[in-house]
């Protein structure tokens, strides 16, 4: 179980981005984390993976525990060794390196399992096997997302943190990525899925959290969230009339009705 309790994160000593966030990712599950831009989703993932430091962020309160042991404050390499891998937003593949070199960098902490993990990743993503000698910068967006997923799996993680895997992909590719995430989860990897594509995320998650300006404002089983009026309106773009609302209307609505209590 990966557990976050009352987490508070401050950037540059002044910007309070997470204001007491708590969430639980039970082993074996898929948990979705939804929220608009700037809600603090990526910051939360950074706090889990130890990458806050790179961005001058600090955990000022609360804790992140893995099976009861605190892991906030560990360096990224130690977090990876404990079985938590992150796929960063925007794929972040190493464009100058070949596909296989990217995967081998992912296996940095698990050199002994390299051959086995390589087989597993190529099994999940046959496209990567056929393109393993190509320079990864030349892959298409969907292939790059698969490479980013595969690279994270090369460390043999128990927990996978996915930051917007559907970003910038065509609907058909989003479905493909979704199926792959389900498949990875079936193989025994717990997934924390950060998404703006709420429909996709909630369709595969057991549980969902909604983050707004640094606080968890909703915490429900995914099915309930999917049928929730507010969620339908904000994240699925379906108003009561069934039409997408304009940004202006949404903003106005938001001002009127806040989830923050």
């Amino acid at each position: 179980m990966l557990e976050v309790r009352n987490l508070e994160v401050v950037y540059d000593d002044v910007m309070l981005v997470l204001r007491g966030v708590s969430l639980r990712v039970p082993e074996g599950s898929v948990v979705a984390l939804l929220g608009a831009n700037g809600a603090g989703k990526t910051t939360l993932l950074r706090a889990l993976s130890g990458l806050l430091d790179v961005h001058d962020g600090v955990v000022t309160k609360g804790s992140v525990t893995l099976d009861g042991e605190p892991i906030h404050g560990l360096r990224p390499a130690q977090v990876v060794r404990r079985g938590i891998s992150q796929v960063m937003e925007g794929r972040r593949i190493l464009a100058e390196l070949t596909v296989e070199e990217n995967l081998r960098v992912g296996a940095h902490t698990a050199p002994r399992a390299l051959a086995a993990n390589l087989d597993r990743v190529y099994g999940l993503f046959p496209v990567l096997r056929s393109r393993r000698r190509s320079v990864s910068g030349y892959l298409s967006g969907g292939e790059q997302q698969m490479l980013a997923l595969g690279r994270a799996l090369m460390a043999g993680p128990r927990y996978l943190l996915l930051d917007e895997p559907s970003l910038g992909l065509a609907p058909a590719l989003v479905r493909q990525i979704k199926d792959l995430v389900v498949e990875i989860n079936k193989q025994g990897v717990t997934v924390l899925l950060v998404e703006q594509n709420a429909r996709m995320a909630l369709s595969i998650a057991a549980h969902g959290y909604v983050l707004e300006t640094g606080k968890v404002v909703m915490d429900r089983p995914a099915a309930e969230l999917l049928s929730d009026e507010d969620i339908r309106e904000f994240y699925l773009g379906l108003g009561a009339e069934g039409a997408a609302k304009s940004f202006r209307e949404v903003k106005h609505y938001k001002r009127r009705k806040r989830w923050l209590s």
């Binding site: 993976s49 790179v54 390499a77 940095h108």
Partner: peptide
């Protein structure tokens, strides 16, 4: 080599290298 690749990864994108567990 593992370390050679780690160095190339870090040279290209330090944060990504960190996320892969490269020190």
């Amino acid at each position: 080599t593992r370390y050679g690749l780690a160095m190339r990864a870090a040279a290209f994108d330090q944060e990504t290298a960190l996320a892969q567990g490269v020190s």
